[in-house]
Design a protein around this nucleic acid. Structure first.
Lengths: 260, 260
DNA sequence: CGTTGCGTTGAGTACCATCAACTGGGGTGG
DNA sequence: CCACCCCAGTTGATGGTACTCAACGCAACG
């Protein structure tokens, strides 16, 4: 009784493994590490229910981008909505004279922006910061399934509210806070979002940003970012290197950031 | 044939006038000057159709506020959503140390904020800037009628997108633009919004803002606002007085504002 | 006629930008 | 292997924008 059963189990395992690797090719969501984050969990649930999103059109709907390439250019009409699957990206505006402001950093599981659902053209561009894989969804299709799927509507309103609150916070930071406040808040905010994705361990996390990216996000110059970050490092609050950031003195960093 | 008819007409006129003044007491929307602006037109259409919004519960749902009083205090739970009927208001955050940032100026016809629909507590406060009348709608009721009323959903998504775009613009302004750019953009943006309400004539419009309000909106101090506005005045671009602002050189102001 | 709120102006300063030089690491090609 | 370059970051010097503190004018108001 022993051996045959074991063989059976092994062969089933192999079957499943095969099925899985086939699925990987067709459907990266199956193995996605952040599939429970953000809007994806809802989309997958709906997709599983059979009716809803046609996320499964395979080759076209999952894209890759190398670092520093624009995923979307401002004001270009598109029928797609983007979700970041892996890697980091950011959404930004560039003024004619070259000044640049990034509006938000996009992490795995993030919808590029809620308003992308309801507008064919966006005022900002989206650029890959690391190697990025992202998912393109058809806007009209998504909106169509919105009326019939209250969970989706709920998830979206949640995303809208969060985005708007974050925007209000950014306005306050840029309007009224000093450079060191802005930078330490930026770091802590990033850590919180990564922690939600279980991407922080031992107060240390991946940090692929150049100082230029930080500067564009907090409205400063790279030179000044260098000075402030240097000070934070010298005070023993953070340590940066090898594409990672580690926080050594969270309490003090939070104090500087004027948090809680 | 002549006289009797005229009397009839006159008496009907009187009837209608009576009915109208009764309606004013119960339902200020009837005579609202901005009833076609923003979300109100949709709400009124739905209300007229009979089923939807119970905007007509009279005495409780229309409120007045004197200047400088908070209509809503940050983080206080509420079941209401606000719409500004007349007068100016603004939504702002106040940091513990007293620094203040206004997030948006609210004009007649404005929904206080789209996210107010989906959150019981808001991170910002709302304050009357002039004498204000505003309408309180029940949040749950409004959301309830949302599924059944696609026009309402459309209007709301439009408002969401506009708010988010405005927020992105504010982030860019505060992060990357100089004081004079910010102030001239602020003025021009305000003029555009007032023009949509037909409240601009001869490039002149009501301007009840103190320099403190401008400073809080554009992230500067009152002293610096005074200097920059003084310069704009001295260059002959604008004229301020008697609670009104008049633009004398639109082209040059737009140039300074880096618009178009 | 004192008070209060708002705007203006001046002097001095802090913060952050700008310009420029220099370092160190990583890749590339000779 | 080394020379070279490029990129990111650092550091210094200098300057400008905007802040702080303070005084004053002015109009509205009780």
């Amino acid at each position: 009784m022993g051996l045959p059963n074991i063989q059976l189990i092994e062969s089933k395992k192999a079957e499943r493994a095969e099925a899985k690797s086939a699925a990987i090719a067709r459907w990266p969501c199956e193995t996605c590490e952040v599939r429970e984050a953000g809007i994806c969990s809802v989309l997958l649930k709906i997709g599983a229910a059979g009716a809803g999103i046609q996320c499964g059109r395979p080759q076209q709907d999952f894209q890759k981008s190398p670092p520093r390439r624009n995923i979307y250019d401002a004001d270009r009409p598109t029928e797609n909505v983007f979700i970041i699957c892996s890697g980091w990206a950011f959404r930004f505006v560039q003024l004619p004279d070259g000044r640049r402001q990034t509006l938000s950093i996009l992490l795995p599981g993030d919808l590029v922006s809620g308003m992308a659902l309801f507008a064919r053209k966006l005022r900002y561009s989206v650029q890959a910061l690391t190697k990025v894989t992202y998912c393109r969804l058809n806007r009209a299709e998504l909106i169509g399934s919105l009326a019939a799927k209250p969970e989706l509507l709920n998830a979206l309103t949640g995303i809208f509210v969060a985005e708007q609150e974050r925007a209000d916070e950014a306005i306050t930071d840029l309007g009224r806070r000093s450079a060191s406040e802005r930078i330490s808040r930026f770091i802590l905010h990033l850590m919180n979002r990564l922690a939600e994705r279980d991407m922080v361990h031992d107060q240390s996390f991946d940090f692929p940003l150049r100082q230029q990216h930080i500067a564009d996000a907090v409205g400063l110059t790279t030179v000044h970012v260098s000075r402030v970050m240097g000070a934070l490092r010298q005070m023993g609050l953070v340590e940066i290197g090898g594409g990672r950031l580690k926080i050594h003195n969270l309490a003090e960093l939070r104090r500087i950031a004027d948090l809680k």
